[in-house]
Design a protein around this nucleic acid. Structure first.
Lengths: 124, 124, 124, 124
DNA sequence: GTGGTCTAGACCACC
DNA sequence: GTGGTCTAGACCACT
């Protein structure tokens, strides 16, 4: 399922809620430059229609991404991609904790430290 | 709340479901050697009684950890801790994917590569 | 309009959304001990029925207060008041910023510093 | 975005409505002396043209600030900055109530009284 | 036109 | 029983 020019894919068989999948898609677009800082996103109604899901679901994703600092929404104007420097420090901290936990489990499972370092070097 | 000789702590006010907390506890015991490879776990009924929770919750945790390769159930014998080398490649791959995704987001958000390397060196 | 034993008052003529009024009411109850740490709140459905508003509105208030650290919700168990020490640092920072802005405007309007100090001393 | 000789900055990506941003700008100018008591403000049309926004937006800001006592409109003469002593007692009372509420929540959350006193001393 | 709120009601996961 | 998700659709505020 795609939405506009935005390369968004949702999967009904994924156990995660649609708004979480949508959030991940939008975060990826912003992080990779698919959505430049300041660029306007499709309106809630547009995207809902394109993805064939309820506008409330879009709105929830937009609202929560705004709370994380990834989006900026303005009444009557639309929703815009924020600069990466605006991203919430809570989001950063959560990611760092996740990073440490995943790294620790991988190392204990015998994953060579070298592989983790390689992945950091080649991270897109 | 503790269970038998196993250092298991569940928290009713943790928003995660009990079976997820239980899975994490058991994974941690296996990863850190608190449960040696081949060691027998308490039966579903025993553990349910010790932790004072529903046996269905124990069973679900055991079942899902077996699917990940952390546990090994033998009909009529009991449930045993698996060798770390037995841990499912699916689990490993999921962790590696998570690792790469989290690392990529952190780097794009401006987290210094040095901090990620430091966290790998000091991972427990 | 009241809800259960909880002394919650909502006002349809207030321009603020109902979920914001509800959040403020619940925050007040937790801050003043009307809801002790660990105490269970009415279920989403109960409170919705008592206040004669939609369960979604209750749920949104509960969800956002959980994000702020005031509540803790557990699947299948209910929603509980958190300890004040759990309250999010973001909430604290927002309050401190508001405090400084309001104090600055009051002082410029000629409010005597003495009055502000008095109000801090006698804050409930 | 600036307007005339008045240092007004509006931000289209600020989630607050433009008239709120404009009100805050004008309040700040009056409180800090950037607009002296009795000084004439640009006409609605002038300011709308300078800021390149809709005259309705200017009018709403002027109207609401007049209600607060920050501005004073004379038919056929224009709009003028009021003396700070003219600021509506409603505005003052709202600010005092906000002050007490915020202070009380901060103290209950464990913020040291010392920090609040410090912020009052150093308020701009 | 935009996003924001609220309602009504269905269905699912967890316990 | 609990909370969580999603839909459908109305109404309001802002530009």
């Amino acid at each position: 399922m795609e939405g506009g020019g935005l390369l968004i894919s949702l999967n009904y068989h994924d156990p995660r809620p649609l708004y979480e999948q949508l959030k991940e898609n939008l975060r990826r677009l912003i992080l990779t430059g698919g959505l430049a800082a300041g660029e306007r996103l499709p309106s809630v109604r547009e995207l809902a229609s394109e993805l064939a899901i309820n506008p409330n679901t879009i709105q929830r994703a937009y609202r929560e991404l705004e709370a994380e600092g990834y989006l900026c929404t303005v009444q009557g104007k639309g929703t815009f991609a924020a600069a990466l420097s605006e991203v919430n420090s809570e989001r950063r901290e959560k990611l760092l904790e996740d990073f440490s936990a995943v790294a620790a489990e991988l190392l204990r499972l015998g994953e060579p430290k070298q592989e983790l370092l390689r992945r950091i070097e080649t991270a897109e």
